[in-house]
C-alpha cells in the first residue's frame, strides 16, 4: 500500500560547526568534494533518488548550521525528520563531546514517536587527516551506549564510507516507516498475515 506512493525521506545532518556536514552531503549527492564551502547559514538541502530494498526513495538531505547559537532554531528543520546523521570530526575531541547534546536536542525538539528506535547514524569524518584525536574504540563505545547506533568512519574528501553511511540511514528510516505504517493501521496486519514473514526483507506488493 505504502510502497506505491513515492517515498520521501527527510534526513537531517547535525554536528558541530566545521565537521564537514556540507561536504558529506555534497560528496554523497554530487560526488564532488571542494574545500571552498561557505559556512552554512540557516539550512540547505539537496535531494537524491536512490533504490533501497527495490524501492525508489527520494532522500531529502538537510544540512544545518553547526554553531551552537543556531541550535535553538532547529525545531523548524527537524520537523518530520525520518532519520538523523550525527557527524563529528575525528581530529576534534570537542566535536565528539558535543554529540550527546546534539542527539538530546534533536530528540527533544523533534519529539519523534519512537525515541528509542529513532534512526540515527554516527559519522566520524575527516579520517584522511593525520592528527586524529578520537579513537575508533571510543566512538564505538559511545554508539553502543546509545542503543547501538551504527558508526562509520568517513572521509568526505576521499569518499570513504559516505555512500554506505547514507544507505544505512535510509534503510533504517524505511524500516521504521514500515513499522509505523503497521502500527497506524493495525487492521492491515490481519489481512497481510500470510505475507508477514517477508515484509522485513522485501516488499511483495
Amino acid at each position: 500500500m505504502a510502497s506505491r506512493r513515492k517515498l520521501l525521506l527527510k534526513i537531517i545532518i547535525l554536528g558541530d560547526s566545521g565537521v564537514g556536514k556540507t561536504a558529506l552531503m555534497n560528496q554523497y549527492v554530487n560526488k564532488k568534494f571542494s574545500n571552498q564551502y561557505k559556512a552554512t547559514i540557516g539550512a540547505d538541502f539537496l535531494t537524491k533518488e536512490v533504490m533501497v530494498d527495490n524501492r525508489i526513495v527520494t532522500l531529502q538531505i538537510w544540512d544545518t548550521a553547526g554553531q551552537e547559537r543556531f541550535q535553538s532554531l532547529g525545531v523548524a528543520f527537524y520537523r518530520g525528520a525520518d532519520g538523523c546523521i550525527l557527524v563529528f570530526d575525528t581530529t576534534s575531541m570537542n566535536s565528539f563531546a558535543s554529540l550527546d547534546a546534539w542527539r538530546d536536542e534533536f530528540l527533544i525538539q523533534s519529539s519523534p514517536k519512537n525515541t528509542e528506535n529513532f534512526p540515527f547514524v554516527v559519522l566520524g569524518n575527516k579520517i584522511d587527516l593525520e592528527n586524529r584525536a578520537v579513537s575508533t574504540k571510543r566512538a564505538q563505545k559511545w554508539c553502543q551506549t546509545k542503543n547501538n547506533i551504527p558508526y562509520f568512519e568517513t572521509s568526505a574528501k576521499e569518499a570513504v564510507n559516505v555512500e554506505q553511511a547514507f544507505e544505512t540511514i535510509a534503510k533504517s528510516a524505511i524500516a521504521l516507516e514500515k513499522e509505523e505504517i503497521y502500527n497506524d493501521f493495525p487492521g492491515d496486519i490481519i489481512l497481510d498475515r500470510d505475507n508477514k514473514p517477508n515484509n522485513g526483507a522485501a516488499c511483495n506488493c
Binding site: 558541530d16 551552537e68 541550535q71 570537542n94 566535536s95 563531546a97 558535543s98 550527546d100 547534546a101 546534539w102 538530546d104 536536542e105 527533544i108
Partner: peptide, 8 residues
C-alpha cells in the same frame, strides 16, 4: 577554555 556544546 574551549568547551563542547552545553546541555540545556
Amino acid at each position: 577554555d574551549i568547551v563542547p556544546l552545553q546541555l540545556p
